Amino acid sequence: MSDNKSSVKWRISILAIFAILAAVGFLLSIMMGSVSIPAQEVLDSLMGNATGTHEKILNSIRLPRTVVGALVGMNLALSGAILQAVMKNPLADPHIIGISSGAGIAGIMVMLIFPGYEMFVTPVAFVGAMLAAVCIYILAWKNGIRPVRIILAGVAVSAFLGAGISGMMIFNSDKIHNALMWMVGGLSARSWPHVAMIWPYSLGGGILALLASRHINILQLGDEVAKGLGVRVELTRIVLTAIAALLAASAVSVVGLLGFVGLIVPHAARLIVGSDYRFLLPASALLGIGVVTICDTVARVAFAPVELPVGILMAAFGAPFFLFLLRREL
């Protein structure tokens, strides 16, 4: 009993550390850039007591960008953690297995063909993500689902959809600049309208994910045990996949195809807090916020005056990590 209490205290302590990391990442993202702003001015601005040029930079540029980055990091980390449980595959990630590409091709259709209807990007991207997930399940199913088969099917679907995105960009070359930045995944020029696009889905999807943690834990026991405990396994998988797709689609809608967050963050959290999804999901969310905001800050200031999209930095870290996991699993 005492060991269990110690384990809970340890996990709560880790959650507190991750919350501090998220807060530090958020603050650094607001403070650092082409113009450095002292922490006291940042705090004054957040409390409504600041005026002048720095206040305009904070409220018009830095703050909305940082809020979007935090919500995107949370959404992708939660989506990856859920998909890894549902697909019983530690390599599952919305970007790698093609769900982000499904959201991407649907979202870019709206952006390129109907540029005046940005409010529909997220719901259309969600439909695209779910259709991609269904295709992956169908292609991977053969007397059951096997982890490696899901990855191979996901890579194939992602490549096919990526070709479709490239084709659409060629036929809409006059609108290609925004589409190119969206393909890489970046937070440049994110503003308050983008915050308005993502926050309702982040709030709803995040709450649903946390409420589903008990069902996810039961799924980890195996299908037969889960059925014995009264869980409708296939329906639960469909609902969880829908939650993961919604979270991924909302992130893709505002920053594009930002990869590897859903792979790296849940794994790092799992190594520290374990596989109990009551703790793993909030840990992944907090760590996702810290990772994306810190990486975006580094990408923004490391090569100044040139600004790297954060997607390039995440791919530089994520690809070797994926290969390491692939070798270990196979």
Score class of each variant (00 low, 15 high):
131 L>C: 12
186 G>V: 14
151 I>W: 10
216 I>N: 01
136 I>L: 08
142 K>P: 04
220 Q>W: 05
174 D>C: 05
177 H>F: 13
221 L>F: 12
198 I>L: 06
188 S>D: 12
170 I>H: 12
181 M>K: 14
200 P>N: 07
145 I>G: 00
171 F>I: 08
187 L>E: 06
135 C>D: 05
149 R>G: 05
154 G>F: 08
201 Y>A: 05
214 R>Q: 10
162 G>A: 06
212 A>C: 00
201 Y>H: 13
217 N>C: 02
142 K>Q: 06
134 V>L: 08
182 W>S: 04
204 G>S: 09
215 H>Q: 13
163 A>W: 08
129 A>E: 01
183 M>Q: 15
144 G>M: 07
194 H>E: 14
192 W>I: 04
131 L>Y: 06
210 L>W: 02
129 A>I: 04
166 S>P: 06
145 I>R: 13
184 V>M: 10
203 L>I: 15
172 N>Q: 02
127 V>E: 03
182 W>F: 04
205 G>Q: 09
193 P>G: 05
220 Q>V: 07
193 P>Q: 12
152 L>V: 00
128 G>M: 06
212 A>I: 07
129 A>N: 06
169 M>L: 06
209 A>K: 00
179 A>V: 04
207 I>E: 13
189 A>I: 01
195 V>P: 02
167 G>Q: 03
177 H>L: 07
171 F>E: 12
188 S>W: 15
215 H>G: 07
159 A>E: 10
173 S>N: 13
215 H>C: 11
189 A>M: 11
211 L>Y: 06
197 M>S: 14
169 M>F: 01
172 N>S: 00
137 Y>Q: 05
183 M>A: 09
143 N>A: 07
145 I>A: 08
208 L>E: 01
147 P>E: 01
180 L>Q: 15
206 G>N: 11
162 G>P: 13
179 A>M: 04
160 F>K: 03
181 M>Y: 10
216 I>K: 00
210 L>K: 00
134 V>A: 05
137 Y>N: 14
170 I>G: 03
165 I>C: 11
131 L>E: 00
161 L>M: 10
187 L>Q: 01
209 A>T: 03
190 R>E: 10
208 L>D: 04
202 S>K: 00
183 M>R: 14
130 M>F: 12
206 G>F: 05
178 N>D: 15
197 M>P: 01
184 V>P: 11
207 I>S: 09
131 L>G: 01
183 M>H: 03
160 F>A: 15
195 V>E: 08
216 I>V: 10
177 H>C: 01
188 S>N: 15
155 V>E: 06
196 A>Y: 08
221 L>A: 13
191 S>H: 02
221 L>T: 15
180 L>T: 14
203 L>S: 02
128 G>W: 01
